[in-house]
């Protein structure tokens, strides 16, 4: 466990030490706050717009952190950093789980910072305190980092370094629409188990409707279960992979 946390710690520390991350968070807050200026252009829908922009930008921020894994793992494998680490008493599975946890923790921290900033802005602009349904919508987005990261780790194992980030981004994009495929034959069988459905974390379309804490918890559990599948498969592939 200590080895896993050491790998995870190095991952999140590396990202959270970057000043550009905080600069981007401030940019996200500015963009969220700027929605209040759209009152005339949206005919009084600026409140809805601010909510939607906050959920959109939080999703994008988390997706970017997740995609950073697809740069990091192939780079470490390519440059031999992974091989150096694996000479120590560290298994390949532990290495992947460490990378996965580090990325998830980073996404959770950044997602929470963005959400907190949004709630402060929302209170300052509209004078409304914390709305539970909005909090749950943001928490679901943050929880979506769990299966997203698992997908990124899996793709880092099976795809060539050059195309991994692009393919991961496309896969994440389409993973929000897999429930439409789940109606058909074979897809129905693999839905949820092999075929991820990130739309389960998507309450953006009805952020004023309370998802319920049980739903939020169940969605996070599903994310964890899917991650077990994806990481086990990644580990199996990594086991047979030659590294420098």
């Amino acid at each position: 466990m200590n080895e896993i946390m050491a790998i995870a710690g190095s991952t999140w520390r590396r990202i959270l030490r970057m000043k550009v991350v905080y600069f981007l968070i401030v940019c996200v807050w500015i963009l969220i706050g700027s929605a209040m200026n759209y009152d005339i252009l949206s005919l009084g829908e600026e409140k809805e717009l601010m909510i939607d922009v906050s959920l959109l930008l939080n999703t994008i921020a988390i997706a970017l952190i997740v995609i950073s894994v697809t740069f990091e793992i192939p780079r470490e494998l390519h440059e031999g950093a992974a091989a150096t680490m694996l000479t120590k008493p560290l298994g390949r599975t532990q290495y992947l789980v460490g990378k996965f946890l580090g990325s998830v923790i980073t996404a959770i921290i950044i997602g929470l910072i963005i959400a907190a900033g949004f709630f402060v802005l929302f209170y300052m602009v509209f004078g409304e305190p914390l709305i539970i349904s909005l909090l749950q919508a943001h928490l679901l987005i943050i929880a979506s980092s769990i299966p997203m990261t698992a997908i990124a780790v899996l793709f880092s194992m099976i795809l060539p370094e050059m195309i991994t980030p692009i393919i991961t981004a496309i896969a994440l994009w389409f993973s929000f629409s897999t429930s439409h495929l789940a109606k058909y034959g074979f897809m129905k069988i693999i839905y949820g188990g092999v075929l991820p459905d990130l739309d389960l974390f998507n309450f953006k379309s009805a952020a004023m409707i309370t998802a319920g804490w049980s739903y939020v918890a169940m969605a996070a559990v599903w994310g964890a279960i899917f991650s077990v599948f994806a990481l086990t498969l990644s580990s199996l592939i990594f086991r047979f992979k030659d590294i420098k």
Binding site: V221, I225, F229
Partner: peptide, 11 residues
């Protein structure tokens, strides 16, 4: 994980 994930996702 596939079986459990599939069942939970449908729910």
């Amino acid at each position: 994980a596939i079986v459990a994930g599939g069942m939970l996702a449908k729910t």
